[in-house]
Design a protein around this nucleic acid. Structure first.
Lengths: 192, 192
DNA sequence: GCATCTAGACCTACTAGTAGGTAGTCTACT
DNA sequence: AGTAGACTACCTACTAGTAGGTCTAGATGC
């Protein structure tokens, strides 16, 4: 499952989901990108559901890795959130996976197979829990000011980032992503 | 174009897009809901693009109507935004078109036909311009406090509402929509 | 009053193309 | 020899869309 071809299939699945959503890509698209035949994909991922679940699991693992890295290497919790936002700003700017695939799939959620729905939900729960822990730590150390509860500020922060991705895509504008997220971070500054 | 069947087709298209996105529904699905044959849909809407463009135009017309109604009948600009949010809270709660189809389609945007992309963009521009005008009026009359520019506060407000819809869908939770949007409105209160 | 014409609405039957998925085979490496 | 990984060739189900016919209601001509 960790061999090169399987990884390339999974990575191009991620690219394609970020571009078009679950129903917007096919095994034929992936076959063309990876340079193998459609049937060969089934050898690595028996069904489309398996492929997308694996893609989401990997995506979540990468988030966990990145979040852990920030926790360990960046002392200031607010700065961690700034770097999180900066990562996405780069994605939006370069148009490389410029949207969170869990947020995108969430939009299509009722039509998706249950196993995928569950993975999407797990991603949201993980992201919310990391942001919440970060906000709480910042509030305790004084680097972050919370206007309301950590729970609600967490939900609002995540919603703003996701909403910013959507607006940026709709308007074809990197700037709108930057200005929304800058505003969201500004609100968390202690002097406010 | 305004006869009963055409309307029913367009309305069920709206339902289905809100549930599944552009690629997630077919003429066969609509035929089943409306109770006519697939081919008959083409009589009213020659292509899927025509149908979705018509659905988005109608959706925007309804938004314009509702926004105009709020402008005329509700004196306080902040209260207009509260009612806008309340409308969506009801949709989320009742699970009747619980997501803005322009926001949903924006997620899939790069894969959509250009005419649809253009309509999605028009919806965003209209919504942003109405919210901005409302915020400005509120700021002038003192019923709304703007922490930053009207432009940025507008973008943030809209992003929070859209992000709240996404989170609510992902977690199957009406409460998260309510708490995010309540927080967004709270920020605009003059006492803050 | 009655036949005829027209047009909209809907139908059956079909097209070419694509979807996800399967069966069975070949090849190269361990 | 066994196995992983790729292949060709195929399947069924479904997609948007088309061709051409039927039915009905209203308007028109005599």
């Amino acid at each position: 499952m960790d061999n090169d071809t399987a990884i390339r299939i999974r990575e191009s699945a991620h690219d394609l989901i970020a571009e078009r959503g679950y129903f917007g890509f096919s095994y034929a698209d992936i076959a063309e990108v990876v340079g193998i035949r459609k049937a060969s994909i089934h050898h690595h991922f028996p069904s489309k559901v398996d492929l997308v679940v694996a893609t989401l699991k990997e995506y979540r693992a990468r988030l966990a890795e990145a979040a852990g890295g920030l926790n360990n290497n960046v002392a200031d919790p607010l700065q961690r959130l700034r770097l999180y936002v900066r990562y996405w700003a780069e994605c939006v700017k370069s148009n490389h996976r410029p949207i969170c695939i869990a947020a995108l799939l969430s939009a299509e959620l009722p039509a998706l197979p249950e196993e995928i729905q569950a993975e999407v939900q797990l991603h949201f729960k993980y992201l919310l829990s990391w942001v919440k822990a970060t906000l709480k730590e910042g509030a305790a150390s004084g680097s972050i000011h919370l206007h309301s509860s950590a729970e609600v500020e967490t939900q609002s922060f995540v919603a703003q980032v996701h909403g910013a991705m959507i607006s940026a895509r709709a308007l074809g504008s990197t700037e709108i992503f930057t200005s929304i997220t800058k505003n969201a971070l500004e609100r968390l500054r202690p002097s406010n």
